[in-house]
Design a protein around this nucleic acid. Structure first.
Length: 240
DNA sequence: GCGACAG
DNA sequence: ATCTTGTCGC
């Protein structure tokens, strides 16, 4: 079952575009940024709450939200997160396109990695290709691979990050830059790991993440996280 | 065999 | 991911 997933990732990965398809950064014309996240229930592996929110710049005011309970068919397997979480987001994005095309965001921030992934195809790229929308991967923890390690050198470079916007490249042994460790808020010690999802350059991706960050986690993703958790709590799905 | 392992 | 409250500090 794993080999089929690898073939599927390789097939979809060939469609990934790692450069800007629009000139938002130069013209400063981004108006809406999406964010997605899934929350789970402690003792229930069968369902999860998926959230897709749309924030409007420059203040990241939430102008749209789609919070839904979704069935889970696949368990979490490191390296294959897309197969577990992408379907719910693809459906939510499809609903948004069908019902509120005027609120469709220019880009979606995804919690998880883009091409900063063992096979270059993380959740953010998965969502980007399936929805054919620009995406950025924003991971809270580093997925170690190819010489990109949480070693002392890594810790040292993190300690050198001071101002929001400070960052350093995450390079493989062969010298390829797969992502950036970015300090997004003055208060946080931990950086966020940004990588290209689809149809955006790494530089623009980091710029956008910083543009949307009031706290460590960029607002669109943070709001999706808050709202999906709250939905589970209010509906007492936890007492199962 | 042992350790690693986004969410 | 989730289990979990308050608390120390800017």
């Amino acid at each position: 079952m794993d080999s089929n997933w690898i073939l599927e990732q390789e097939k979809l990965k060939s469609k990934v575009i790692c450069y800007d398809m629009y000139n938002w950064q130069h013209k400063r014309c981004i108006s809406r940024v999406g964010g997605m996240d899934l929350s789970f229930i402690k003792g229930d592996e069968s369902v999860a709450c998926a959230a897709l929110v749309v924030c409007e710049l420059p203040d990241c005011e939430v102008v749209y939200e789609d919070i839904t309970m979704v069935p889970l068919t696949i368990s979490y397997v490191p390296g294959f997160l897309g197969f577990r979480e992408a379907p719910a987001i693809v459906e939510a994005f499809s609903r948004l396109r069908d019902t509120n095309i005027n609120l469709v965001p220019e880009c979606i921030l995804v919690d998880g990695n883009g091409i900063l992934h063992p096979r270059g195809f993380g959740l953010a790229s998965h969502v980007g290709v399936l929805c054919d929308v620009p995406t950025v991967g924003v991971a809270k923890n580093l997925y170690q691979m190819d010489g990109i390690l949480r070693d002392d050198d890594q810790k040292h470079r993190i300690s050198l990050l001071h101002e929001p916007g400070d960052h350093f490249a995450l390079k493989t042994n062969s010298g390829n830059t797969l992502g950036l460790a970015v300090k997004t808020s003055a208060a946080s010690t931990k950086p966020v790991y940004v990588s290209v999802g689809h149809k955006i350059s790494l530089h623009t991706a980091a710029w956008l993440v910083c543009l949307c960050s009031k706290y460590r986690i960029p607002e669109p993703v943070r709001q999706a996280d808050i709202r999906s958790r709250e939905f589970i709590r209010k509906n007492s799905f936890s007492q199962k």
